[in-house]
Design a protein around this nucleic acid. Sequence first.
DNA 1: GGCGACCAATTTTTT
DNA 2: ATTGGTCGCC
Length: 658
Amino acid sequence: MNTPTDDILKNLTEDQLTAVTHLDGPMLVVAGAGSGKTRVVTRRIAFLISQRIWPSQILAMTFTNRAAREMQERIGRLVGDVPRHVGTFHSCCARFLRQYVEALDDGRTKDFVIFDADDQKALLKQCLNDQPATGGLLPGAISDLISRAKSACLTPHDILAKEAWDNAETVLEVCQAYENRLRAQNAVDFDDLLLLVARLLRERPAIREIIHNHFRYLLVDEYQDTNHLQYELLKLLVNPANNNIHATGDPDQCIYSWRGADYSNIMNFEHDFPNAVIVRLEKNFRSSEHILNVASRLISNNLNRIDKTLIPAIAADDPQKVRLVTVGSDRDEGLWIARRIKTLHLNGNPYRTMAVFYRTNRQSRALEEALVRAAIPYQIIGGLRFYARREIKDLLAFLRLKVNPADRISLERVAAFRGGVGPKTLAAIEQCAREQHLEAFTLLCQPDFAHRWQKKNAKVLDFANWCRQLHDLPCTPVGQAVAAVHDFADFTHHAYDREGTPEARQENLQEMITNAIHYEREHDQAGLNEFLQEVALVADVDTHDLDRDTVIMMTLHCAKGLEFPYVFIAGVEEDYLPHANTVADPDQVEEERRLFFVGITRGREEVALLNARSRPSWDGDWGRQPSRFLRELPMDDIIHTTFNVNNPTVPKPTFRRW
DNA sequence: GGCGACCAATTTTTT
DNA sequence: ATTGGTCGCC
């Protein structure tokens, strides 16, 4: 008889089976690229459920929304029940925080809002403006400092002690002001989501106990990419009585050390969780032999690594060598890829079997053009994030203000959107609000605002009246709330001047309303703040529509965890891969090599690497050098060709010597 | 004090 | 190409 458990355990290797059926105690699965890691994680969750563990007792954390979604789908297919707590570190923490934030006693309430990178910078700019003599300090540099500090469980002070900064005193004051204002606005930044949960678990034993009793099994994906904060958080989350933590990862795929990922976490797992069972998955079920040879040789050039092999487990009839294509220019690069895609498609391969990877988002433009010209359908994953678009951020600002009147960043945005009230007037209103111990927006919404506002200029009274109407719009159901705000602010007729396509903006706004309606259908009781939380944490809403047959384009970082029969990696050149900003530091070059390794190991049947001899810079063409990594590859597994159609543009000399 | 016009700088990777 | 900042006008 075919019980669900048979399905869950079928087609697994012995090592995979060990990993799937492990029950209690810590386990680390060191899973090489293509060794069936996702399969192991999803099957194990299904297995736990089949062993009568309640789905709600399982907490599984990933790094990306896509990984979380995929995991949920695959579990759903194996067992009917999907654990509720499958999500990114950030979304899981947001959920805990929503529930327990008030125990922190720092003034934040469960209606807190999440500030994204843009909001963070806007807030820092305010802090900088309030400080005299902040000459030359950039919000970006400070937000970077704050984030680095938080993700390393340090203070900005600790970091400044080790680095030479100009006017360190001022920087620290700005950091302090930033934290104060976040708290005053009932807001948290991305790192706070994890940091505050860690603090709760550390400082509130009662909550720690609730969590420990609730979650019996903890799973972590991509353990090599955990930063120190995530590591601390995990140690606090796991119940010391059983140490049921199940981590999977591959040190060779650590590509996020720039944001604090520390693969010594995975190296130290045995030490941190004594008696851990370690399983190594080294058989590769994904790529052809040539691809694996190329990838293995490449990664063996990293000095800082434990030697590890990828054993090919599939034998293709006619394995394709890895193609190395040297093209004359970026236009040829796009053209070659487009032609190859066409050929593959004519041979019966759907577009969705092909993916184009690149190092930086800006490279996508030229490639996109080539695909458009060749009438090849494509989707770009990542890149300009939907919720970071101007019109979307505007609409969100209205919604956020309704949920949280203390959100001053949003109030500013809303005022700027409407016009008539600028920064100076707003500051005056804020001053007045402070005297009356109200938030500025709350003051504006008071029915007796006219009494409370001494200088009765008509513009401000108008604005207050308008704010009150905004405030009175319904917050539920979510779909209607979003639509109501959209109509109230008259987005349809808003003049977004001198910018490309007004139609695109209207479409985006419509999509936002549609998303809200969908969200409302799927989450019965959800309020506006839950919707806003979801929105803040979903990076790519123009997500990968699997139903559409298109070529997929994305950065190498985005590609981790995916696989495609046909893979193209563009711009395998010095300054892109390794990126120019990394070449001074050998450790960073090793990370670039891992990134390249991740890209190559995504391919099942054929991988093509392209390098252009010239590529336009902002002014004229610049010659380009092939990546140093290309010299490290085994030529027996590679076919090198050149391709020159568009006139190779000769690099202009930077100056003329006569 | 607000707003539009013009000019500069900008991009490594993401939750 | 897009955004952010500064200048001068209303």
